[in-house]
Design a protein around this nucleic acid. Structure first.
Length: 959
RNA sequence: GGGCUGGUAGCUCAGCGCGAGAGCACACGCUGGAUAAGCGUGAGGUCGGACGGUUCAAUUCCUCCCCGGCCCA
C-alpha cells in the first residue's frame, strides 16, 4: 500500500512579500490567502540566479577538497580507457579565447566519454622549448643591457626553463578556472627531463635506422635570429622590394635567331644575382626576339639591342624598359631554346661561369619576362632544378646575411643593402635593362618581423621518400584515420603528398639537441646504439643540458676518439618535439597507443597532427591517433579575426568574471565547432539567456520535486500518456547524446536539449502539469506520475548537462542529493527501451498541432477583452473523425489549460470557439467551474480542491 | 596567387531539387502560484551577388564574382 510521504505544503510565501494591494476587507481575497497555503508550490534551495562568477570558484574548491579527479579515476578503474591525447599549448602568455575553446571542447568530450562509461584519463601538457621563449629571455637581457652571447648556454637554458615554468603555472590555473578536469598533478611538459630523453631517443631512432641525413639546402633563414625557421614560424606581410630586369647575353645559341641577343630575366631579389647558376624557361611558352628601335630618355635600354622575352609579357617589358619602338625579329618555343648557353651578367667582374638555359615547369607568364633566374642556394624551385641538372649550390651568403668573403664585388655586403651595389655592378657590366619597385607579400620572421631570405645551409633532414617511404606510409595512415570533419583528411593528405623532406635542425639554444656525432674524416653520422643508450640515460636524469655540460667522451665511451668526431650543436625543430609527445605521454606511461583522439584547431593539420604523424610513421609505421577532430578559429561578431588593434577581442578571463565559465562552455557547445566561430558581447548575452532557461528548468524541477520520496513512484504502465510521451522524448535525446559520444560530432546536440527544455518542458509539459502538481492530493496518481517523471528529468538533465555546465549541473545535483555528492561521478542514465514509442510521439505531435487551434482563438478573445487567463475560457473544439477519439474532453481541458473543452464532431477542422467559462472561479486552482459552491464546507472551491483540502494530506486553511 | 572552408531572419544554427524552418532576441498581450520568472500571439528573410548556366522546377547542382576564415606560396 502506498505510504504517505512527508509533505510540506508551503505555509508561507518564503522570501516573497504578499501582494501590496492585499485587502483584509475583501472576503474572496481573504479566502484565497487561506487556500494558498494548501497549494504545493515549488520549493528549493537552488537559486534562480546563478551568480556564477562567485559560485564557480567555490565549486572548484569543493572538487579540490574531495579530490574529485582521484575519485573519478577510482570510480572508472577497469572500464575501457578513452585517451584524448592533449596537444600541448605553448607555455607563454595568458590563455586567449582560442585556447579556451580548444580546452573546453576537449574537456566536454572527455567528460561525455567518462559519463558514457569509459575511463577518460586526460593528461594535459605543455610545449616549452622554442624560439618565442628564447626571444623573451633575450629581450630581458637587452633590457638589462646584457650581451646574450656572453651568457653561458646552460645559464641561458636555465632562464628559459624558469620562464616556461612560470607560464605553465599561470596557464594551469587559468585552465582549471575554465572547469577543465584532468591529471594536473601528472601533467607533461616537453622540457621535463624524461621528455627530453625520449625526444633524443626518437631522433636517434631516425639516426639508427639510417633515415636521418645531413644536406645542404636552401631554407628560410632569418638573418636577425641567425636561424633557419620552420614553416610555422613564418608570417607573410607586404614588403617593398627592388625589382630588376637583367640581360643574360647569349653565348652559344641553340637556334640562330638568338645570335647576338640577350635573354631578359626579372627578379624581386637583386641580391640573389651573385648566386645565379642558370636561367629557366617554360617549354610551352612562345618567346619573341625583339629589336629595340627607339628608347625613352633615361631608359637603360639601348637602341638596336636584341632581347628575348615571353610574347605574352612583351608589352609590359617594353613599357618597363622604356622601349618606345621595336621590331619583332623572330618567335621561338621555350623548348627550342633550351640548351642555349648564356653569360652571367657580371662576366668580366669575377662571375665568369657559363649559365645554361633550362626548362622549368614552375615558370609562369603572369609577371616578369617569362624567364626565371635560377640561384640554387636561394629558392626551393631553384634548388630542385639545380640538383636535377647538376648545378653547384654556392653558399654565397653567411648566417648574418652578409656575402661570404669569396664572393667577388660584394663580399661583406648585407643582403638587405645589396640592391644598390648589385644594380651598380650590373649597370657597369652593361646588363641592367631596367629597375623598379614592387610591393608584394613576402615572408617574415614571426618573432623579429624581419624579412627572411632563402639561404643554402647544412641542415639535418628526415626524408619523405626513399627506402623508408615515410610519405607513402603517412598517406596510408591518413586513409586509416577517422577525421571529424572529414575534410581534414583531404587537407593533411594534400600537404603530406606535396611537402619536401622534413628539415629538423635549428641553430638555436633552447631545445633538445640533435644528439649526433659526425665523423670528421667521412662526414658520416655515428650510428651506434650503445652511444645512443648513454645519451638517453644521461638525459633521463639530467635533461638535455647534459649534452652541453658533459665532455663528448662521456657519450662516445672508450670505442671512439672524441677528436675524430664533431658534436652536433643544432637543436631539433620544436614540431619534432611535440610530434614525439605520443611516445613519452602515452607509450612511456603505459597508456594505450595509438590515442583514441587528437583534438586541435584546424591550423594543426600543418602543425601537430602533421609532425606527430610523420614522427610516428617514421619510427612505428602507423599514426599515433585513431581519430582527429578539428575545430575552427574564433572571430569577432562580424566574423573578422580578433586583434588588439581592432579592439574586438574577447578574453576568457573577462567572460569568466562577467558571466561565468558555464556561459563560455555553453557558447562552445552552442556553436558549430567544425567551422569558425564568433564571439562578442551580443553573442555572450544570448548564451546567458539560453543559460537562464536551462537553469530555471532545473530550478522548477527541483522545486516541484520538493519532498519527493520513493514511495510516490509509479510504474511506467500506470503513467498517463503525457508522462509516457515525456519519457519517450528522453529516449530520443539520449540516443542523440550517445551517438555524439561515439562520433564526436556534438553540433546541435545541446541546442536540441535547450529546445527540449524550452518547448517540450517549460511551455508544454510543465505548464500543463502545474495544476496537478500544485493542487492535486499528494496521493493522486496523476501527481505521483508527474513527480516520478520529474525525478527522471532531474537525473537526465543534470547528467546530460554536466559535461558542459559542469558547475551548474553540480549545483543542481547537490541541491537534491547533498553537497557531498557529485554529478560528475555519475553515468548517463540507462533508459528502458520500452520508453521509446514512436506511435505515441506521432499521436502527441498531432495533439500539439490541434492545441494550437485552441491557443490562437484564446488570444483573439483576449484581444476582445472577453477573457484574461486561459482558465477563464470554455472551448468548443471541432474535431474530424480521425481526431475525435484522440483524447477525451477532460484530457483536452488539461492539455489546453482551460476550464472546459467540449468536442464538436466536425468534417472540417475550423478554429475552436472560445467563450468565457460559466460558473465561479475556484479559489484554490482558479478553474472556472459551475460546481464551485456546491460543497458546503468549502463554498469557494471546486470539488477536486475541496477533496484535497479535506483529505488531511495538505494543510487546511485557517478556520 | 594555390589548397581547404564558410556566407539562410538581429544572433546561434537546421534544411540542400519541386511548400523558407527552429531556438533566442524583438513587438504586443496574458499572468495575484517558476515572478530580476512563466504562458500565448505576432512581426521579421528577393536563402552573399550574377537577374549567369543546367533543369519542367533552384536557397539547394555548375560557372564566375564579392566578402570572411585556416593553411601555404
Amino acid at each position: 500500500m502506498y505510504r504517505l510521504p512527508l509533505l510540506h505544503p508551503r505555509t508561507a510565501p518564503a522570501g516573497r512579500p504578499l501582494p501590496t494591494d492585499f485587502s483584509m476587507n475583501d472576503a474572496a481575497t481573504e479566502q484565497q490567502r487561506d487556500y494558498r497555503d494548501t497549494v504545493f508550490l515549488p520549493q528549493t534551495s537552488f537559486p534562480m540566479r546563478g551568480d556564477l562568477p562567485k559560485k564557480e570558484p567555490q565549486i572548484l574548491a569543493k572538487w579540490d577538497s574531495i579530490d574529485l579527479w582521484s575519485k573519478l579515476r577510482a570510480a572508472s578503474a577497469g572500464r575501457p580507457l578513452f585517451i584524448l591525447h592533449d596537444g600541448p599549448p605553448y607555455a607563454n602568455g595568458h590563455l586567449h579565447i582560442g585556447t579556451a575553446l580548444n580546452k573546453i571542447l576537449k574537456d566536454v568530450i572527455n567528460r561525455t566519454r567518462q559519463m558514457a562509461g569509459y575511463d577518460a584519463n586526460y593528461i594535459p601538457g605543455w610545449d616549452c622549448h622554442g624560439l618565442p621563449i628564447e626571444w623573451k629571455v633575450e629581450e630581458e637581457y637587452r633590457a638589462k643591457k646584457q650581451d646574450k652571447d656572453a651568457v653561458p648556454i646552460l645559464d641561458f637554458r636555465a632562464e628559459c626553463r624558469a620562464y616556461a615554468t612560470h607560464w605553465m603555472g599561470v596557464q594551469k590555473d587559468e585552465f582549471r578556472r575554465l572547469g577543465v578536469e584532468g591529471a594536473w598533478r601528472d601533467r607533461y611538459a616537453t622540457m621535463d627531463r624524461p621528455s627530453e630523453a625520449a625526444i633524443a631517443g626518437e631522433i636517434c631512432k631516425f639516426l639508427l635506422n639510417g633515415a636521418l641525413y645531413r644536406g645542404l639546402r636552401p631554407v628560410m633563414w632569418s638573418v636577425v635570429e641567425k636561424t633557419a625557421l620552420a614553416e610555422a614560424e613564418i608570417e607573410y606581410y607586404d614588403h617593398t622590394s627592388t625589382t630588376i630586369w637583367v640581360r643574360f647575353p647569349v653565348v652559344k645559341p641553340s637556334v640562330p635567331a638568338l645570335e647576338g641577343a640577350a635573354i631578359v630575366i626579372w627578379t624581386t631579389t637583386p641580391w640573389t644575382m651573385p648566386g645565379n647558376r642558370a636561367v629557366a624557361a617554360g617549354a610551352e611558352f612562345d618567346y619573341v626576339v625583339v629589336r629595340a628601335d627607339d628608347v625613352a630618355e633615361g631608359s637603360l635600354a639601348r637602341a638596336g639591342e636584341k632581347i628575348v622575352v615571353a610574347e605574352a609579357l612583351l608589352p609590359a617589358v617594353l613599357k618597363d624598359a622604356g622601349i618606345t619602338a621595336h621590331t619583332v625579329l623572330a618567335s621561338v618555343k621555350g623548348a627550342d631554346i633550351a640548351g642555349t648557353v648564356l653569360a652571367h651578367p657580371l662576366r668580366g667582374h669575377g662571375f665568369e661561369q657559363d649559365t645554361p638555359l633550362l626548362l622549368g615547369d614552375f615558370v609562369t607568364t603572369e609577371a616578369g619576362t617569362g624567364f626565371v633566374h635560377i640561384a640554387p642556394g636561394h629558392g626551393e624551385d631553384d634548388f630542385v632544378l639545380g640538383r636535377a641538372n647538376g648545378l653547384d649550390i654556392p653558399e654565397t651568403v653567411g648566417d648574418d646575411g652578409t656575402f661570404n668573403p669569396w664572393v667577388p664585388l660584394f663580399a661583406g655586403v648585407h643582403v638587405y643593402k645589396a640592391s644598390d651595389p648589385v644594380c651598380s655592378a650590373l649597370t657597369e657590366a652593361g646588363n641592367l635593362l631596367a629597375r623598379g619597385k614592387i610591393v608584394h607579400s613576402y615572408p617574415h620572421s614571426w618573432r623579429s618581423k624581419a624579412p627572411l631570405i632563402f639561404r643554402a645551409t647544412p641542415q639535418w633532414f628526415i626524408p619523405l621518400d626513399g627506402p623508408h617511404d615515410i610519405r607513402g606510409k603517412a598517406l596510408a595512415a591518413i586513409a586509416a584515420t577517422q577525421f571529424v570533419p572529414d575534410q581534414g583528411r583531404n587537407r593533411i593528405g594534400s600537404m603530406v603528398a606535396a611537402r619536401p623532406d622534413w628539415c629538423i635542425s635549428r641553430q638555436r639554444a633552447w631545445g633538445v639537441p640533435i644528439t649526433v656525432f659526425v665523423e670528421k674524416k667521412s662526414g658520416q653520422p655515428l650510428r651506434d646504439p650503445a652511444v645512443v643508450a648513454r645519451i638517453v640515460e644521461a638525459f633521463e636524469t639530467e635533461g638535455a643540458d647534459a649534452w652541453y655540460a658533459s665532455p663528448p667522451s662521456r657519450f662516445l665511451g672508450n670505442d671512439y676518439n672524441p677528436d675524430d668526431y664533431e658534436q652536433v650543436m643544432d637543436i631539433v625543430d620544436v614540431w619534432f618535439e611535440s610530434g614525439c609527445t605520443h611516445a613519452f605521454v602515452l607509450e612511456k606511461r603505459g597508456l594505450p597507443w595509438p590515442a583514441d583522439l587528437y583534438l586541435e584547431g584546424s591550423d594543426q593539420h600543418r602543425g601537430w597532427f602533421h609532425s606527430s604523424l610523420l614522427e610516428a610513421v617514421g619510427t612505428r609505421g602507423v599514426a599515433p591517433f585513431k581519430a582527429v577532430l578539428t575545430h575552427g578559429f574564433v572571430n569577432d561578431e562580424k566574423g573578422r579575426k580578433m586583434s588588439k588593434s581592432l579592439g574586438n577581442t574577447t578574453a576568457p578571463e573577462e567572460v569568466a568574471a562577467k558571466f561565468g565559465v558555464d556561459i563560455l562552455r555553453l557558447w562552445v557547445m552552442s556553436s558549430d565547432t567544425t567551422e569558425d566561430l564568433r564571439i562578442g558581447p551580443e553573442i555572450l548575452k544570448q548564451q546567458a539567456e539560453l543559460y537562464r532557461r536551462l537553469r530555471n528548468t532545473l530550478r522548477w524541477v527541483l522545486g516541484s520535486l520538493d519532498g519527493f520520496s520513493e514511495t510516490e513512484r509509479v510504474t511506467f504502465e500506470e503513467m498517463p500518456e503525457l508522462e509516457r510521451w515525456v519519457l519517450h522524448r528522453l529516449t530520443e535525446i539520449d540516443a542523440k547524446i550517445r551517438a555524439a559520444v561515439v562520433s564526436y560530432d556534438w553540433t546541435g546536440v545541446y541546442p536540441d536539449l535547450h529546445n527540449f527544455c524550452s518547448v517540450d518542458l517549460s511551455a508544454f509539459y510543465f505548464d500543463i502539469r502545474k495544476d496537478a502538481l500544485y493542487c492535486d492530493r499528494p496521493d493522486s496518481l496523476r501527481r505521483r506520475a508527474a513527480r516520478t517523471v520529474l525525478d527522471q528529468l532531474h537525473r537526465c538533465l543534470c547528467t546530460w548537462l554536466a559535461p558542459v555546465l559542469c558547475f551548474t549541473a553540480e549545483e543542481a545535483w547537490g541541491a537534491r542529493f547533498g553537497e557531498e555528492s557529485s554529478v560528475h561521478l555519475e553515468l548517463f542514465p540507462e533508459l528502458p527501451a520500452e520508453w521509446h514509442d514512436d506511435a505515441l510521439a506521432a499521436k502527441w505531435e498531432t495533439i500539439r498541432s490541434i492545441r494550437r487551434r485552441i491557443t490562437v482563438p484564446i488570444e483573439e478573445s483576449r484581444k476582445n477583452n472577453e477573457i484574461g487567463s486561459s482558465l477563464q475560457a470554455a472551448v468548443e473544439l471541432p474535431l474530424n473523425a480521425d481526431h475525435v477519439n484522440l483524447l477525451d474532453e477532460a484530457a483536452w481541458t488539461e492539455i489546453a489549460i482551460v476550464s472546459s473543452v467540449q468536442i464538436v464532431p466536425a468534417t472540417d477542422e475550423s478554429p475552436s470557439k472560445v467563450t468565457p467559462a460559466s460558473g465561479a472561479k475556484c479559489a484554490r486552482c482558479w478553474k472556472v467551474l459551475t460546481e464551485v459552491g456546491t460543497n458546503a464546507s468549502h463554498p469557494a472551491l471546486c470539488l477536486r480542491c475541496a477533496d484535497a483540502v479535506e483529505s488531511g494530506l495538505v494543510c487546511k486553511p485557517a478556520a
